[in-house]
Nucleic acid binder design. Structure first.
Lengths: 341, 341
DNA sequence: ACCCCGGGTGGGAGCGCTCTCAGGCAGCTG
DNA sequence: CAGCTGCCTGAGAGCGCTCCCACCCGGGGT
């Protein structure tokens, strides 16, 4: 029980006095107690307890030049980003890992391109030890901006070629997952496999398309349909596909939400899934994939794990004595078999 | 253009030297320049510009005992809280207002009750000037916890009676909105108005129930049905209601999501809305209310505005010379008329 | 002409901490 | 038993800033 609830907060000086040691020794104990003899450690610990001592963060970071805080930069180019369950999971992973590293999460919400200056100033001001950002679109100037500030940073998602040089990223193995999905359709006996692709300006969507092509190099271009990751676009694309190639018997859809739309179209037209057409999605979004009719076979990525990994990479960057160059990480994905394929 | 990109960051001392003034004067200019003659102000400003000087936050807050950061505490008792669009909007409002006040947002994600200690320690550690928290459930121990830390705080949503004493809150006028909704149904000629209520342990749900009762004091208890804010529960409650009182001609539902479920039940049974039964929801959730069939008449609350208001209240608390006691704010709501009532 | 007043400026202390460095006290070797 | 090594401990500087206070200087009153 802390003794004094009110009054000025006790300083290290006070702790030292109470424990009968010097400020230096008290400091050593507070910071782990390495190289201090046990009886003294005990005395200091007790004094800390009794006084309810909490280190003054400002004083500490003034001298250590570290402030134990990491910025999480969230750009909001679209209508809703934050309420995306994907983000929720990633931010949760980040938060948990940050807590494990005793670091704080400072949320930087970018309000459009005009706000970039503010972000740059903040990062440049050294208020945080590092930054975590999400790379969403090709035209996103955030990666470049962060690269320029020279603040240690890690991206979530692979930035478009050339925009985030030197900044490591954590990305799911979109291409490999896509290959696995398509191979699964092949193994099921599908001979005419289509792909409903995501937006051209997102590396994840592009990678999934590339994975499809890796397996089905010579596929008819008519089997490729463009979507924009919305349910509606998935439904439309499926309809178009059915028209162009009525013989289609397998579809790899670039995300679960579009797959849900495609499934709807299929259902409406009385096409049996997976009997007539097998469908595989991507993301294994908890609110979608297990609930579609039939339940969606899809590719799962460990989103929270990716968030945690981002933090671990950043911490390595920060601790790094400058030796090793920080390597980006591509996390494995797994095919989750349900009913649709 | 900052002159030196690399090397140690310039200090105020360097700025002062370059401008040919004392550190004190340089400090005054950096902090607004009050009481410094124009030519000197200019000189210092130029030096700041040329050196790319950015104040050291740690040093500043060491002496001012302010750190320009506010904690936003998010408890997660349920499955998903963060991805709730309600939260998104509120946090966005908070973020914007905080930015306007030049303060940072430190996100504290509470991982269950066991995590309370950590939060308390953090808040008690004086790392932030104040805290913003959301009061969700009656049994939430967060309000009490925050009250004990003595950190200036503001709640979003009214805490349960007795749990967050002395801590001001910002809440929507749930009761008044409910009254308005019910009165609207009355004005439409509805004579048998039911209520589908939200969870008993949330003040917002309770207040809406009270609003209903304010207008319909002697209503048949059979007209009251319990839901839990999910779509499914709304659908079920509506079915029950239809069974208990087939003559029901108006329903006030405690939130839009449940109203959407109720609408579904009504549609499935061929009950005309608003012809046979008029329906009013609550929240005016953008992703729900305008998209239901028929579009939902509901009560709108300015969620982002509430977030901003929370920050403004907190800032007043912080600036407060201790004079006025901080008053909670109940923000007005408006009835949005669409097709369902 | 002298003094006083007040706005502007600079000197310097000190916020609470970490970290280097010198000193002290064992314990061990020669 | 002297000398040396090595481990602990304490003294003190200093991180970059704000703010108090003393000082300076010009203008107005006596």
């Amino acid at each position: 029980m802390p003794e004094q609830i009110t009054g000025p907060r006790p300083t290290l000086e006070a702790v030292a006095a109470r424990a009968g040691v010097s400020r230096a020794t008290a400091s050593r104990v507070v910071n782990g107690g390495a190289g201090v003899r046990a009886p003294l450690v005990d005395k200091v610990r007790r004094a800390v307890e009794e006084l309810g001592y909490v280190p003054n963060h400002a004083a500490r970071s003034l001298v250590t030049r570290r402030n134990g805080a990491v910025a999480v930069i969230i750009a909001e180019p679209e209508f809703r980003v934050f309420s995306d369950p994907f983000f929720e999971q990633q931010v949760r992973g980040i938060s948990r890992e940050l807590t494990a590293h005793d670091a704080q999460l400072v949320l930087l919400w970018v309000e459009g391109p005009g706000d970039h200056d503010r972000i740059a100033r903040y990062l440049g001001g050294g208020h945080v030890d590092g930054a975590l950002a999400f790379s969403l679109h090709d035209d996103d100037r955030l990666p470049a901006l962060i690269g320029r500030t020279r603040v240690p940073a890690v991206f979530g998602g692979r930035p478009a070629a050339g925009s985030g040089q030197g900044v490591p990223f954590v990305d799911a193995d979109n291409r490999g997952g896509a290959r696995e999905a398509v191979r699964h359709l092949v193994s099921l006996g599908c001979g005419t496999i289509a792909h409903i692709a995501g937006p051209r300006d997102q590396t994840s969507a592009l990678d999934r398309l590339h994975g499809y092509r890796d397996v089905l190099a010579g596929a008819d271009p008519a089997l490729l349909c463009q979507g924009d990751f919305t349910e509606e676009s998935g439904a439309r694309a499926m309809a178009e596909l059915l028209e162009r190639r009525p013989d289609v018997d397998g579809v790899f859809v670039a995300n679960d939400v579009m797959a849900s739309g495609a499934l709807r179209t299929l259902r409406e037209r009385g096409v049996a899934v997976p009997g007539d057409v097998a469908v595989v999605g991507f993301d294994d979004m908890a609110s979608v994939a297990p609930r579609t009719d039939p339940a969606l076979t899809t590719v799962r990525q460990d989103i929270e794990g990716m968030g945690r990994l981002m933090v671990r990479l950043l911490m390595r960057l920060l601790d790094g004595t400058g030796g090793e160059p920080p390597a980006s990480v591509v996390t494995p994905v797994t095919l989750v078999r349900r009913a649709s394929a």
